[in-house]
């Protein structure tokens, strides 16, 4: 129960940060991604502001045995940069650049009065579902090539 409340509260704080920082405005995000044009650096401040408390928390994590409300930390241990990761990142970046939405702002923005946000979020869900039903062995089979 306490973990459920923690999840809701951290979601609310996260969404508040997305709205306060203008991450929920695709025009602002695209202006940030327009590095070769009239670059708007605002979102670099958002990233900087987010990394400070986050990095502090990961430093604290190394000094405590377990989280306050749970039995263990669940942190990904995989450190291998493989083809799936890079192809996935590139596909995501292209979609991000087409519209200016990544997953967090697309969800937070559902209540900010634009129908396009709902269309984007619906398509994003379809994309996630498509991934879950697609055979991606072509990526996995060749991933060793990048490790060498």
């Amino acid at each position: 129960m306490r973990n459920l409340i923690a999840a809701l509260l951290t979601g609310i704080i996260f969404g508040a940060g997305l709205a306060l920082s203008d991450m929920v405005n695709p025009a602002r995000v695209l202006a940030f991604l327009d590095l070769f044009g009239a670059w708007d650096p605002t979102l670099a401040f958002v990233m900087g502001g987010a990394l400070i408390p986050s990095a502090l928390a990961y430093a604290i994590m190394r000094r405590i045995r377990r989280p306050l409300l749970h039995t263990a930390f669940h942190i990904p241990e995989n450190r291998v940069v493989d083809r799936q990761l890079l192809v996935g990142g590139a596909i995501f970046g292209i979609g991000w650049g087409l519209v200016g939405y990544c997953p967090g702002p697309a969800l937070a923005g559902l209540v900010l009065g634009t129908w396009q946000t709902w269309a984007f979020a619906a398509a994003m869900m379809v994309g996630m579902w498509l991934h879950s039903v697609t055979d991606l062995s072509i990526f996995r089979g060749r991933s060793n090539a990048l490790r060498r």
Partner: peptide, 26 residues
Amino acid sequence: PEVIVTSSIPLIIAGGLLVGFGTRLG
């Protein structure tokens, strides 16, 4: 916050599909 979406509907759908698929793959 201002929310300004400038992309056309086909781009919005394509962008959503790519973001959904790409974030799962990556």
